[in-house]
Simulated scan of single mutants.
Amino acid sequence: MRFSSSVLAFAATLSTASAAYKGFNYGAFFNNQVAKVLADFEYEFNAAKQLPGTNGEFTSARIYTMIQHGTTNTIIEAIQAAINTKTSLLLGLWASAGQANFNNEISTLKAATQQFGASFTDLVLGISVGSEDLYRNSVIGSQNNENPGTSPAELVNYIQQTRDAVKGTGLAGKPIGHVDTWTAFVNASNNAVISAVDFIGVDAYPYFQTTMANNIENGNDTFYAAFDATVAVSQGKPVWVTETGWPVTGDTRNLAVASAQNAKIYWDDVTCSLINANVNLFYYTLQDVQWGNPNPSFGLKPAGDLQQVNPLFDLTCPGSSA
Rank of each mutant, 00 (worst) to 15 (best):
F223N: 08
N215P: 01
F116A: 04
L51K: 07
S6D: 10
V179D: 10
A17Y: 03
G130D: 05
A97M: 09
L134I: 02
G250L: 03
V197K: 05
L155T: 02
T222P: 01
R253N: 15
P296I: 04
F30E: 14
N157Y: 07
D268L: 12
F10R: 14
T211P: 06
V129Q: 02
T249Y: 00
S60K: 09
V257S: 06
V241T: 10
P148I: 07
S107K: 14
V139T: 15
T59I: 02
L286V: 08
V186G: 10
T271D: 10
G201H: 11
G168R: 13
L38D: 13
I67E: 04
F10K: 13
G92R: 01
S297Y: 00
L38W: 12
N220K: 15
F29M: 14
N187W: 07
N278V: 07
N215T: 12
Q307L: 14
K22L: 14
N103Q: 11
G98K: 00
N103K: 05
F58R: 10
S60T: 11
Q33M: 12
K237G: 06
K86L: 02
A165C: 05
A172V: 01
N157F: 10
A35K: 10
N101W: 01
G27L: 14
Q308Y: 03
E217D: 15
N32V: 09
D305I: 04
A184C: 08
L90D: 01
A229N: 13
V193F: 06
M66I: 01
Q50H: 05
N187K: 06
D305E: 09
L171A: 08
F208L: 12
T85A: 08
S234G: 05
Y135Q: 06
F58H: 12
T108L: 03
Q33E: 09
E132H: 04
